[in-house]
Design a protein around this nucleic acid. Structure first.
Lengths: 146, 146
DNA sequence: ATGCATGCAAACCATTTGCATATCC
DNA sequence: GGATATGCAAATGGTTTGCATGCAT
């Protein structure tokens, strides 16, 4: 069903059902199951093992579509690097990332809703969105020497 | 006094009181007063008017020191661009940015503290920090045609 | 057959780095 | 005088773009 959503997103964003997109979708389904996060380069390298001519740009273009379709979350690290993660695209959530290994975990915390309204009034902005990321150190990295 | 803090930060980060740093500090004091946010390139261009040989790298290096000293806040936009803002380095706050004009406003909202502890327990992470940014549309941009 | 998506390579752009020189102490 | 910050230019790294070709429809 996550697979269906991905295919649906591709179909909606454009019109052709191509081999590269199939490969990307398949890999993303696996990544969705493991809950793992990845960089664009990770994804490209992995896909290239089975399809040496697959272009980097194709991966960028596909990922962009899926981010727009809210099927992938883009996570920004303090060092400027980006990771991605398959997210059902359903419930509202944010991320907690490990400072050391860059692992990403979904979390449900958020600001109380009335806060948004209050800020809107106070500043005279229409609040349209927000991003919240927590930083920490995961169990493994805490145990590791440094 | 913000000026003092900036000089103190430079002194602490290294040892020399150079002309480029003086110029940077002066400009930042002005920017602190107006509360305006800026990009590194903005800053460089402005400084270059009075000091044509000032190097871009010098600005990058100085800004980095001041960000580390918590005198400048780095704000990331969704499009990946970075803006900076002089912040006293005192009270905890976050930012509200205008989607259209990129104006930046400080806000005091934050997660309730107990939430952090809860998430820490739940995920087995040591929570060390967080970033929260609100996105919206400011009054001017709402009135503007698009 | 038509035209969109791809692959490739070059272009981009912000940022970093190496190094000779100028500057500060 | 000796060391460090600077300026410059080149390198970097992630991402985007232009274009000829291939492939899905």
């Amino acid at each position: 069903m996550i697979a269906d959503k991905i295919y649906a997103a591709f179909e909606e964003a454009s019109q052709r059902n191509t081999r590269p997109r199939k490969l990307i979708a398949e890999r993303l389904v696996e990544l969705a199951q493991s809950g793992a996060d990845f960089t664009i380069d990770d994804l490209w390298q992995e896909l290239r093992e089975g399809e040496p001519h697959l272009g980097r740009a194709t991966v960028y273009r596909s990922v962009e579509m899926l981010v727009n379709a809210r099927l992938l979350d883009r996570i920004e690290f303090a060092d400027g690097s980006h990771h991605y993660r398959v997210c059902g695209g359903n419930h509202h959530h944010h991320h907690l990332t490990c400072i050391r290994c860059h692992r990403v975990v979904e979390v449900d915390v958020c600001l109380p809703v009335d806060q948004f309204a209050a800020i809107g009034n106070q500043t005279n902005f229409d609040i349209e969105g927000h991003s919240l990321t927590l930083f920490g150190r995961c169990e493994d990295c805490r145990t590791a020497k440094m």
